[in-house]
Design a protein around this nucleic acid. Structure first.
Length: 268
DNA sequence: CGAGTCCTGTGT
DNA sequence: ACACAGGACTCG
């Protein structure tokens, strides 16, 4: 269930372990993992050197090179995807990547929602996504948010608005900004936009820092245990007292996603 | 917009 | 038995 900070932590681990390695062989244990033809994808990947590993929102982009030819492998972990270096294959192992002279990279995915796509250039779908939440300027953010007419929580989850925010960090950012999740984005002025922009940056930065310092290393065998999670103020705290005002944390639905907020701190 | 879909596991 | 899960796509 990785969002931006978890994916960032994963790619940093992958860089340490598999960057500059050559793919000796790829075995797909779940054909539907692959977008497009499985055998062709496996053939395309064979012999590629991994020359870069980047994050694009919640997507992992492996930059590949074989001879002069560049291409990429785009992986989305969705809910339960995970990489494990030198771990043991199990019932949830969906792909096995053998690296020349290096470790074996396993891909686990209990719910089978993850997707792998090989292509020569960055897929169109990825280029349609919004800016990185940690790169967007306040000015641009304020302008973009006011151009939308929807509940702010729904907008934060929209990857074409910003790429990488998910349900947890959207809720946590709104809490920190003291914005009600159902507030209308069209009515968000400079002051509230400033608070939200800062809150998003802060919560993601803290989570990435925590991911980097956490004992769990996703990319090693213990990674299968699960993802780290930043200490939350509202997410999953339904019925508990708010840590700031002691008010009750409520749960509601926005865009058919479970949404948590403090009714006292977060005014409409 | 919302609802349904893809999947399996966990918690009540 | 049933609701719910941190994601995203498709359809009406």
């Amino acid at each position: 269930m990785p969002e931006l900070p978890e994916v960032e932590t994963i790619i940093r681990g992958l860089r340490r372990r598999v960057l500059n390695r050559r793919i000796a062989n790829v075995e797909f244990l779940l054909p539907k993992l692959v977008v497009g033809n499985v055998d062709q994808t496996a053939a395309r990947l064979r012999g590629q050197r991994i020359v870069g590993i980047r994050r694009h929102g919640k997507y992992i982009v492996f930059e590949l090179e074989r001879g002069r030819k560049r291409s990429c492998l785009v992986v989305h972990l969705r809910m339960t995807g995970n990489f494990i270096v030198d771990g043991d294959a199990g019932p949830h192992t969906r792909a096995i990547v053998a690296l020349q002279g290096g470790p074996t990279l396993l891909y686990h995915d209990m719910r089978k929602f993850g997707r792998w796509q090989w292509s020569e250039r960055l897929p169109e779908r990825l280029r349609e996504l919004g800016p990185e939440p940690l790169e967007i300027t306040l000015e641009d953010f304020a302008k973009r948010i006011r151009s939308r007419h929807a509940m702010v929580k729904a907008v934060l989850l929209d990857q074409e608005f910003l790429r990488g925010l998910g349900n947890i960090y959207a809720d946590e950012a709104l809490f920190r900004a003291r914005l009600h999740p159902k507030a209308n984005t069209a009515k968000i002025g400079a002051k509230r936009a400033g608070r939200l922009h800062a809150a998003i940056r802060d919560v993601l930065t803290e989570a990435i820092a925590q991911g980097g310092s956490t004992i769990i290393n996703y990319v090693d065998s213990e990674g299968a245990q699960g993802y780290f999670q930043l200490q939350t103020y509202v997410y999953g705290k339904t019925g508990e007292p708010c840590k700031v005002c002691r008010g009750k944390i409520r749960r509601t639905l926005v865009a058919s996603r479970s949404t948590h907020y403090c009714s006292k701190c977060q005014r409409r």
